[in-house]
Write a protein that binds this DNA or RNA. Structure first.
Lengths: 172, 172
DNA sequence: TCTCAGTTTGCGGATTTCGCAGATGCGGGG
DNA sequence: CCCCGCATCTGCGAAATCCGCAAACTGAGA
């Protein structure tokens, strides 16, 4: 029902204040602190957050609502793909002839593609795909991705072990 | 304060029921439906979730608590790196001589490394790094990552545009 | 100084969360 | 077949939290 996009800036008409630098609404220290609280526990009560950052419960609530409305953050459940039945994952580097963005859109439309990014370097696109098993993985890479018009070649990196995965952006 | 890890199964002593297949506690359809609700809105009230999945408020609450305790999911705020002041991101492929896992651990310890995964293919490791600007990115790649003992070579893919980023694992 | 827009604060009232005690359901002995 | 242990679900009050709103506050500009 909604995009699920987090980081593609655009896609939001009211970003008039946003200049070409990609700065965005820039957050003050208090909003950063609020985000930090919610990165530890997305369900932490507003009053507890307020106590931690030095603000009233209502003020925290308004700030959180604005951050959500602006698309700066979203509060979601993230799961371990392994325990949810997806046992094969891979990063796929893609080389494209013609319009890269249209290929990216086509890949982004595939539900198995969890992550699609345009890159500079020896690949034009990097795509993370998550599958149920080897057969599924094979089909996605060799049948679906390579069938997209404009895809010249692909190189796959099957995941052996995920070592780190954080959601601590904006905390440092 | 806590690991922030999602998908590295291990790291949890109480995983005795987990066999070598990597199956995990396997979830029934109701838990899947609960997760789906929380992927849309991590703060959705238990009663609303219960109405959606056909369970009482208390039952939903118990299931959610168990899913959190088991590490199957976590409810967190995720942010757009751009609006939080990180303007340069890159995927880095790493080739290793010697023990790959110890290199992975060293990279995982770096705060700029958002994502570290051991892979099969022409790279031993893939690392996503998020930086404030070009200088920062350059320093991380050329000074820090290549300084790790065992790193033979790296190849960088600077992000030009993030096209898709979802958290819809387990929903399909 | 005055105005205005954006934030913060302090409240009630509605809603939600929480803990617990009592059902319900389901195998595994005996 | 019955009983028991274990896990889950349900139905409550009580406590905490969320929510909307009006008033107070703040800083920039006329």
């Amino acid at each position: 029902m909604h995009s699920g996009l987090v980081a593609s800036r655009s896609a939001d008409p009211r970003d008039s204040r946003e200049s070409k630098n990609g700065g965005g609404p820039q957050l003050d220290a208090v909003s950063l602190a609020i985000i930090e609280q919610l990165q530890e526990d997305g369900r932490r009560p507003y009053a507890a957050i307020g106590k931690a950052v030095g603000l009233s419960e209502a003020a925290v609530r308004q700030r959180v609502q604005k951050l959500l409305d602006q698309g700066v953050m979203q509060i979601v459940a993230v799961t371990d793909p392994l325990t949810v039945g997806f046992r094969r994952q891979a990063m796929v580097g893609v080389n494209v002839e013609g319009d890269v963005e249209s290929v990216a859109d086509a890949l982004a439309a595939m539900s198995e593609c969890e992550y699609v990014v345009m890159t500079a370097g020896s690949f034009d696109l990097m795509v993370e795909i998550v599958c149920e098993d080897d057969d599924h993985l094979l089909e996605v890479i060799n049948k679906r991705i390579r069938a997209v018009p404009g895809v010249r070649s692909t190189e796959s990196f099957v995941y052996l072990k995920l070592k780190k995965q954080t959601y601590m952006w904006g905390t440092r």
